[in-house]
Structures are given as structure tokens and as C-alpha cells.
Design a protein around this nucleic acid. Structure first.
Lengths: 228, 228
DNA sequence: AAATGTGAAGAGGTTCACAGCG
DNA sequence: CGCTGTGAACCTCTTCACATTT
């Protein structure tokens, strides 16, 4: 509508520092993509491939990720490729694992062991050998005290007594929304520094605690918005 | 490293049109955020609020979303706000529901009714009244033929016979990864136009089918990458 | 006075085009 | 020659600053 004076921002350099840089040695670049590469490379490895070009990796990953994008991403984790040849699958998969933290084992605690908790537990137990379920908590007296795949199910009330000795750095929250914030606070107080939240609640966490949220209703509504 | 001739790109205007515009009447703007607004507004409504400013909405939503961001987003769905006052909660929640497709009811089919399928079903049944589970499919003979909340569980082999009459536009895939692509193809062939995929597999779908993927391992590895 | 709506500037991520190197 | 790695261009989304409206 109306014009504005064209030179409002003279030198004035550091407005707000925003010095926050993620811990990782690489940049902030898309972790989700790096994970997709890692998975595709593991598949390729199982299929016997030893060398892979960015184009072929791009094709295997799908999702409309271009080979240029692949190269740019990979250049951020180190110059692994050999010009004219491609990438050594073993070397690259190892490097990506290191960046993603998949070269270590992780112990995690699940709070809320209903269907969803069971599903996640079974999935991790069966498919992801780097992730170990070390603690399970629920408030259902019927299952408290029983074992699940060798892990004792504790009552949520005992969290502060049981959890600190388990050495879990990751907590998975699968409790109803109204209970989520309290559970999160207690997990953090017990030394957990990363949370995966399935409850539809906006968690407020202290700085330094990593959070990922999976929101089923949000995903569905993104779909429905596209169905016109 | 090395300099480059500074003027490589002379006139050469229309390189690639890139005329792709999303279907939605608004722009492409962040659907996930719109959903968060919608949820926060519903909460505010239940709490008796009738008017809400962008700052207060920003605070309720959390997640580091600024009030400027809120205003910008909302300006894309229509000029709902009143200057000096804020937004009428009822009007805005209605408008957002319309944009997100949450003003209609949706029928969906779940394929794979293990723990995860049960969890999703229970969640939707109990918490999301706009989403109705109309079809359930599994290959476990032990549960095929039984009912779940009034819905008959069918064998996956019968998908083509059962699904087309159910009028589902959304399919939820909770089968093991190796089976996911085949299930997706069959769902699409039966008229499903939106898929929510929980299997760790990169689905290849025809144009016009909406897809959201939830990948537990990816989420966990994003967390671990941040734990250094 | 208070809060929205919005051009313009800025930041960040993606694509292009090509130098570099095996 | 083929494919990687990368400045630069491009594009998209976010933030700023302020005119506008109630």
C-alpha cells in the first residue's frame, strides 16, 4: 500500500545475537534427511552395494530429494565422496551413524504403557537394536509389578526412586495429555535430557532438554486440509 | 576456494516455471502451525475466552512461535482480527476448522491392527470426534471376524471387497515395513486419497495422493544426534 | 491507546552451474 | 569422462517496523 523509507537499517549489526548453535559438529542441517540417507545406505549395504553415487542414493531415498541436495548434505558431514566414483557405503554409513548418535547404545524409559507404549516398546525391541527399554512406568495397578521382555513395570509414583539408577537419557511420554507436563517435569528432574512426546500437549521444558513431539491429530488434519 | 566469473547468468529469464501451487485456497502456509492455533483456540474457548490477542495466542501455543508469526499466519486465512481488540475466538476457530478440514467428518481405514493400530484407534475413538474408524484390516486370523467398538475386523485379503463400500478417504498404515508399499497401492486402488504411514518405508505413490509419514526411529535419532 | 495487517528486510535452506579431481 | 563439492543465485519463510484501524 504505502511506500517506506528505503534505508531504515543502516549498519546496526548485532540486533539479537541468536548465538544458539546446535551441539552437533555439523551445521543445523536437516537431521531427518541424514537419517533417511543412513537408512537407505544400510539397505544398500545389505544388498551388497559397496559404492553409491549421489544420484542413486537420491533415487533410493525417494521423497523428491535431489542428488544435489544429497551432495550438499553429505558435504556438511565431511568429504567422504570420491570424484568420479561416488561414496563408499561403509565409510559413509559409519560417519552418518556417528553424527546421528547411532554408533552408541541408548537407554530409554517409557511412561504410560497402554497400547501405544506397548507398540513402541515392541517396535524398538524388535527392530532397533541401538535403543534399549530400561524403564517402564504406568499407573495401572493391574500391570505394575509384572514384567515385559525382562523389564519390570513400575508404578509412576515410584519414578523418582526407580528411574535415577536406570541411566536413561531418553524418555517417551505416552500418557494422556493432562498428565504429560507433570511427567515431563519429573523425567527431567531425574536426569532425562531428551523427550519424545506423544501426548497432544505443548510441553514447557528447561533449556537444554531436547524435545520431539508426535501429534496424531495434527498429522491427520494436515491430510484433511489437503483433501479440500 | 577459487573465484568465479561474476556474471554467468545474463538475461535468461524463465528457467523453470515452477508453477506448482498447492490446492488450498490459502497459500502454502504452515499447516502444522494452523493446527496448533486451532487447538489452543479450542482450549481458550472451553476456558470461556471470547477474544484473544495474537500475543496471548502465541503464549498459549508456546513452541517459540512469535505473535508476529501468529498474525502473519492468520492474515493468510482471512482478516478475522479487530484492531485494538484481537480475534474473536469463535469466528477464528470456525475459520481455521474450515481451512484444516475439521468442519467435516472423515472416515478412515486402519490396516494392521496390532498394538499400534489399537492405540491409534482408541485415541481417535476417544478423543477426536471428527475422525471415524470405518474399516479395520489385519492378517491375524485370531482377530479377523471379531469386532472392535462396533467395527468388524476384516482380513487384509478382503480389502478390495470390503473397503470400496466403506467410503474411507484416509488410510492408516501400521503394518511391517516390507508390506507397506503393497498395502498403500491397494488402498489407493480402492479410492483412498490420503495416507498416514507408520511403517519405516519410503512409499511411492501416484500424484494426487496425500501422504504423511511418522517414523519413530527417525524421531529418536534426531534426539540422539542432539545428545552429542 | 492498543493491537492488527503488511511491505520490506533478513535469514535460512534449496537449486544451479560449474570448477575440481579421480 | 563422471561425479563430487561448492560459490552464487534463487526462493521461501521469518522477523522487523510501522501505517492503519477500532
Amino acid at each position: 500500500m504505502q511506500r517506506r523509507k528505503p534505508d531504515r537499517k543502516p549498519p546496526s549489526p548485532s540486533r539479537s545475537p541468536s548465538k544458539r548453535k546446535r551441539a552437533s559438529s555439523v551445521v543445523v542441517i536437516s537431521l531427518p534427511r541424514l537419517f533417511l540417507y543412513h537408512r537407505a545406505l544400510e539397505d544398500a549395504l545389505r544388498a551388497g552395494k559397496q559404492m553409491l553415487t549421489s544420484s542413486e542414493l537420491s533415487r533410493r531415498v525417494g521423497r523428491g530429494i535431489s542428488s544435489t541436495q544429497v551432495r550438499k548434505d553429505l558435504s556438511h558431514v565431511g568429504k567422504i565422496g570420491r570424484r568420479g566414483q561416488g561414496y563408499d557405503v561403509v565409510v559413509l554409513v559409519r560417519r552418518l551413524a556417528s553424527v546421528l548418535g547411532l554408533d552408541r547404545d541408548w537407554r530409554l524409559a517409557i511412561v504410560g504403557f497402554g497400547y501405544l507404549g506397548h507398540a513402541l516398546g515392541a517396535y524398538l525391541e524388535y527392530r532397533e537394536e541401538k535403543f534399549h527399554i530400561a524403564g517402564i512406568f504406568d499407573n495401572d495397578e493391574a500391570i505394575v509389578g509384572t514384567q515385559w521382555h525382562g523389564v519390570r513395570i513400575s508404578h509412576v509414583d515410584d519414578l523418582e526412586r526407580v528411574l535415577p539408577v536406570l541411566g536413561c537419557s531418553i524418555g517417551i511420554i505416552t500418557v494422556p495429555a493432562p498428565a504429560a507436563q507433570a511427567v515431563a517435569d519429573r523425567l527431567v528432574a531425574c536426569g532425562v535430557t531428551a523427550l519424545l512426546n506423544f501426548a497432544p500437549a505443548a510441553l514447557k521444558l528447561p533449556h537444554g532438554v531436547a524435545l520431539r513431539a508426535i501429534d496424531l491429530a495434527s498429522e491427520l488434519s494436515i491430510l484433511t486440509s489437503q483433501l479440500g
